[in-house]
Every structure is written in structure tokens, then in C-alpha cells.
Design a binder for these strands. Structure first.
Lengths: 319, 319
DNA sequence: TTGTAAGCGTTATCAC
DNA sequence: GTGATAACGCTTACAA
């Protein structure tokens, strides 16, 4: 580009980056711009990164659990929002048995790492020391940390069931052990509500995604004394399994057992009967996360997250 | 590292990269390795990329459609497989209204671009000119191209219904227009089978994910003359909507209308009645894609894809 | 077997 | 207002 426009590489750099405190004659500017256009010039990111010590990349580390529809949507929203801020989102799913990612940031050199339950506190601190900004998806709802948020979600489920008049609750854990990081705090939230309302411990069972297994659990709850009349499912899929189990037992929701799911996946609305669930408002959460990333980069304080409205009960026919 | 081990940077480089045709004394090697270990040294990727002209990154461009469970799984499998080959998978979801990605490869400088329906032929050629390898998810099933594969999937659905004795088929298109790239070839596959078997054109309808809308469509098919007795749904969610529509009309599957979905999402097995569907074998497809990427990088010819077994009918109770 | 030096594309500094 | 020049961290001829 410098050759074609007959100026030095430095000048080209000034023009293309609109460097402040540099007065460039309009004519030179035009020449450079035209030349760049003509050559289809695009700055070479690795070189930029080498010079700057970091890239324009945001590394989103997602942990070793299945990528569900919610996370997928979050990624979508994030990609879009960050693109508007000139940042490229790099998602690194971290499946179990892949090599450790503790220092993946060293080799990628992103401007920001979004640490979603992947980096330990120590690793996170190491990254910070190296000048990498670290953002934790701090949904301000429920307190600020990941677990706070999950707990709050569990609380909402339980509160809904309690408001419907249920006095003994069950909790349906997922069979997939990788989901423990979600399931534990959610269950804890349910426990908190039960304790606060004097309802007694929730009756917790692991529910695989098979109708036969779910049927057993449903029967167990139905025969328990006192009877479990309402159950919080870890997510919509588990809830769907419960509904299948109910059908197998010729029981019905919400009469014999009320069920509330979580995530509001498309299948929830189409279930039989249509499933009451908790919508997690990924567009809001994603937008907030994008803002947090951009603000962190600018050195601004991270803004408070979205309001509690980002978690909504979607009431259908199972409660 | 060079300082600590008391050798030159070049030697360090030789050791760490196991450069061929360089004989390094075992003792030196050890010293360097130990020093690197001690310092927690990790090569700075952008610098490497600058030197090499490309990075160890594989850029997976996925188009502007919703990220469903299948794609999510594919990403997971790919990440894992590529990590084993020392490659880092970068997924760039390309939501509509984000800035164009036609030359995203210029700024990322990946070693390989996996072009999944994003880059036009021209853009793809431009990337190739620039020395970037481009891999197209060429599921060898059905022919090799993306559309071939989708067509084959549609064919399998239709063949299954035909084998069940249905003589007039319906096709349920998704409401989301972004899915046309999938839906068109799938529908075409169904058409091919109908033509080959002399079944007449499939009766095609758009089915939004609401039971009321689906109920209308179901009624239409049920009253059509000749009656539509079996329908291929674009995917499991659409199929679930159809089942909900059937319930609303007090009709049953497969008696009044047989339904076959596609994807085998978890909810399919838990539906009422359990949904017959097509499983797409993402682990196989992902593994094949990873191999294709690695082989392309090594200059080897791309191996044939997985066998037709990667598409399997999962027969449940709706056909 | 190891060290030296050049250079990848960019940008900051400083001189012109 | 513009242009040399150096430096970022790494690889690789080539020289020792």
C-alpha cells in the first residue's frame, strides 16, 4: 500500500488507524485510502497482535458440559454484540479429556477472557497478572456470581410451586454428572425456599432421560408420605422425562404431580401437557455480558447486570 | 528460557519445536526443557503466526441459523478432535446483521477455514488464493456436498414412510426462513422419493412451533383428498409441533397421521407418543470433518466420509 | 552441536 | 505533515 500510494508505511498506518495527534493532508489521506481499497488490503491480525501484545479476540471458555440451546443462544447474542464493538468472539468449548486450558490464554493472547467456570481462581489470577482482562459472567441477579445466579433460578422454581400451594417438593437432578456445577446451586436454591417456608427438605432424585426410569421416580414421589405434589426439574429435558414417566404411570400433571422445568426450550411449549418452566432471558444476559466485556476493555467499571426480569416464569399447564 | 538454560534462543526454538535435521545434545535438550517448564513458558501464538504467515487456528464459519443441539455437538466433537491434532478450533457464528465475514479469514489468518454455507464460491476461491486451506463439510453420504447430504436425509425420511405403506406424503417446513438452506434440499429429497415411487407431489406446508397453527395444518392434511397419511417434518421440533397439533385435534399418530422427525433431540424420545426420527450421527460426522481438516493441512487427499450408517432411522411410535 | 542475524507486518518514537 | 527506524516474539538459513 505504501508503495502504491508513494508514502511511507508509517503514514499508511496513521491514515488507516486514524491516529490522533497526527495531521495528515487530505490529499495523502485519499491516496492511501484509495490504494488500500484497490489492493483489498486488510491488516494482518497476528502482526497487530504481536505488536500490541494481544489480539482483538475475546476468548469465551465454556466448560465441559453439553452445549444446550441456551448457551447456543448466548453465544449467538455475544458474537453479534461483540462484533459491533470490533471484537471477534472465539468460543472454545472444553470437552472433558481435551488437554487442559489453564493457559490457553497464553497461546491465544486474547484481549479478554470470559471465564465461565473453566479457570480456577489461581489460573484466573495468572491471566490477570499477564495483563489479560478476565470477565466472569456475573449475572447480577441473585448476587453476582455464577452460583448465586443458579441458586436464584432454583429459588424461583420453588417459590412458584409454593405459591401454587404445594407443601412438599421434589427435585429432579440430571443423570449427566457434568452438570453438577449447575445442578448443585439450583438445588440449594430450592432447599433455601423450602427451609424459609418450613416445607421440609426437598425429596431429591436423579432422573435419567428415559420414561421408564422417570416413571419409577414419579411413582416414588406419588407414594411418599407426605406425598410430593410438586417437583422442580433441573431443566426442561428432565421435566419432559418426568411428564413421560407420569404418562407411563397413568398419572397426570399437575393433578398428581406438578412439574416446573427450566430453560424454556422449544419442546417445552409443545409437550403434553405444555410445560411450565423458567425462561432465562439469554438475550438480556448476553447483552449484559457483551457490555461487561467492552467496558472492561475500556477500563470502565462493569455495569450492573440485567434486572431480575431476565428470569421469568413461563406458566403453562403443568403447575 | 534461553537465559535460564544458558543457550541461545535459536537452540531453544530447535528443542521446543523438535526441529528435524538438528542434532541437539541430550543434556542441552534437558536443560532447555526444564527451564521452559520452570518458567511456564508457552509460545506466543501471534508471533508464531506472524512468522509462519498463518496460525494454528481452524476457523469454523457457521451460518446465520440457530445453533441447534446437533451443531452444538458437532462443535464439541470437532474441538476435541482438532485439539488432538494441535489445532485450536475457533467457531464464528455469523448471525444475520453482523458485519460480513467474507474476509474474516484475512484478519484471523487461520490455517484452515471450514466453510459451512457462509463463504460464496468467489470468497472461497479468494481465500484459497491467499494460501488458506478451505474445507467444506463434505459428508460423503449422498454425494459429497452439503446439499447432497441434506437431500439424502430427506430421502431417508420419505423412504421410511413409504416402507410403512404411506402413499401420500406431507412435508412440514420450518417457519424460520433462515433454515431454508437446510429445508430446501431436504424437501427435494422427499420429492425425489415420491417421484421415484410414483407417490405424487408431497403436500408441503409451513408449520410454526405453536400447537394451534400445527393443528390447522394437521386438519388440512387429514381432510385432503387423497388423505395425507404420513409427513416428514423438517426437524424434531417441527415434528413435536405436529404431535401437539394432533392432540389438539384429538387425532393420534401414527393412526391418523404418521410423523417422522429429524435430529433425534432428547425431547424426541420423551414426546407423546415417542417420536420416530432420523439420527444424524454427529460424532461420526465431526470425526470425519476433523480428519478432513488435518489431512488437508498435511496436503493429503481428503478421505472419504463416514458411511451411510451415520444417518440412522430411530424408530419409535409415530410411524 | 550451537550461535548469529535477518525478517515476518505492525505501530510508537522521534527526527526531519 | 511525513518518513526513518526500532521493536514486538518467534523461526530459520547460514556461519562458526
Amino acid at each position: 500500500v505504501a508503495q502504491l500510494s508513494g508514502v511511507s508505511r508509517a503514514t499508511v498506518s496513521y491514515v488507516l488507524n486514524a491516529t490522533p495527534n497526527q495531521s495528515i493532508s487530505e490529499e495523502t489521506r485519499r491516496r492511501v485510502l484509495d490504494a488500500a481499497e484497490e489492493l483489498g488490503y486488510t491488516p494482518f491480525a497476528p502482526a497487530r497482535a504481536l505488536r500490541a501484545g494481544r489480539s482483538e479476540v475475546v476468548l469465551y471458555l465454556i466448560p465441559e458440559w453439553p452445549i444446550g440451546p441456551n448457551l447456543a443462544q448466548l453465544v449467538e447474542v455475544l458474537t453479534l454484540n461483540l462484533a459491533q464493538a470490533g471484537l471477534t468472539l472465539v468460543v472454545h468449548a472444553h470437552p472433558r479429556s481435551a488437554r487442559p486450558v489453564g493457559d490457553l490464554w497464553k497461546t491465544i493472547a486474547p484481549a479478554v477472557v470470559i471465564n465461565d467456570q473453566v479457570l480456577s481462581a489461581g489460573e484466573e489470577e495468572a491471566a490477570r497478572q499477564a495483563g489479560i482482562r478476565v470477565v466472569v459472567p456475573g449475572f447480577a441477579i441473585g448476587g453476582g456470581t455464577f452460583a448465586d445466579f443458579q441458586r436464584e433460578a432454583g429459588r424461583r422454581q420453588a417459590e412458584h410451586l409454593a405459591a401454587c400451594g404445594h407443601t412438599r417438593l421434589g427435585y429432579a437432578l440430571p443423570h449427566d454428572e457434568r452438570l453438577a456445577a449447575f445442578a448443585e446451586p439450583r438445588l440449594e436454591g430450592v432447599r433455601q425456599v423450602c427451609a424459609r417456608l418450613g416445607l421440609g427438605e426437598p425429596d431429591t432424585r436423579v432422573v435419567p432421560l428415559h420414561s421408564a426410569a422417570a416413571a419409577d421416580t414419579v411413582e416414588h414421589w406419588h407414594r411418599a408420605a407426605p406425598r410430593v405434589s410438586g417437583v422442580c426439574a433441573y431443566n426442561d429435558e428432565v421435566a419432559l422425562a418426568l411428564l413421560a414417566g407420569l404418562r407411563e404411570q397413568r398419572l397426570t400433571a399437575p393433578g398428581d404431580l406438578a412439574v416446573i422445568g427450566m430453560d424454556d426450550i422449544p419442546a417445552a411449549a409443545l409437550a403434553f401437557p405444555p410445560l411450565t418452566t423458567l425462561a432465562l432471558g439469554m438475550p438480556e444476559l448476553g447483552g449484559q455480558l457483551a457490555t461487561a466485556v467492552a467496558d472492561t476493555l475500556d477500563g470502565k467499571p462493569v455495569p450492573p447486570g440485567p434486572g431480575p426480569d431476565a428470569i421469568r416464569i413461563v406458566r403453562r399447564n403443568t403447575t
